[in-house]
């Protein structure tokens, strides 16, 4: 069931969305081209932070520091059943979206996109938002400085997201 859903998701979107656009009399081809150009911009925009993060993680891994960190956090990660390789991703996710994307990329390159770790890294990236960024942008826009309880709730939701991601990954992958 899950397999069918995920296998069909991409092709079905590829037909349904342009079809819906045509029904709504949108210039689907021209709009597509415009969007594709934005895709180019996104990649260009992501590139510097991807590079920065890949280098930092590369250094951490090659030096053995990542292993050290994993060993320190072992009591906690073992308790929730999280593979230690995912610890850096879980820590960076609420702070930097492109940083987390870089770490997830590195994990998939190292262990394979279809490995358990690779899939779980993808799911973890998609499980939560960049809490600190969201807070800064939205409250910054209306000039609010006292953020009250929002950060506590945001981080609480992040922790729940990480733990449930581990839980559901064990069920589905």
């Amino acid at each position: 069931m899950v397999e069918i859903f995920s296998e069909w998701l991409v092709p079905v979107l590829l037909i349904i969305i342009p079809f819906y656009g045509l029904v709504k009399k949108a210039k689907v081809y021209e709009i597509f081209i415009e969007g594709a150009k934005e895709g180019l911009d996104v990649v260009v925009r992501i590139f510097p932070s991807l590079l920065a993060m890949l280098v930092a993680i590369g250094v951490l891994r090659a030096s053995g520091a990542l292993n050290l960190l994993a060993q320190i956090l072992m009591p906690f990660t073992q308790k929730i059943g999280m593979p230690e390789e995912l610890v850096p991703l879980a820590l960076i996710r609420p702070l930097s979206g492109s940083g987390a994307l870089g770490i997830a990329t590195e994990l998939m390159k190292t262990y394979g996109a279809d490995s358990f770790i690779g899939k779980m890294a993808s799911a973890m990236y998609g499980s939560t938002e960049t809490t600190f960024y969201v807070l800064a942008v939205y409250f910054g826009a209306v000039g609010i400085k006292n953020i009250r309880h929002s950060i506590v709730s945001g981080i609480f939701a992040d922790i729940v997201a990480i733990i449930s991601c581990v839980f559901y990954s064990r069920i589905f992958f």
Binding site: V2, L101, K119, G126, S127, S164, F172
Partner: peptide, 26 residues
């Protein structure tokens, strides 16, 4: 999805169900 596809995932969208479940829980 794009990133997974470019890294050679057989089924680039197969993580989505887990993401949706965990965000809904969170």
């Amino acid at each position: 999805i794009g990133l997974r596809a470019s890294l050679g995932a057989q089924n680039p969208a197969d993580f989505v169900i887990v993401s949706i479940f965990s965000t809904a829980t969170a």
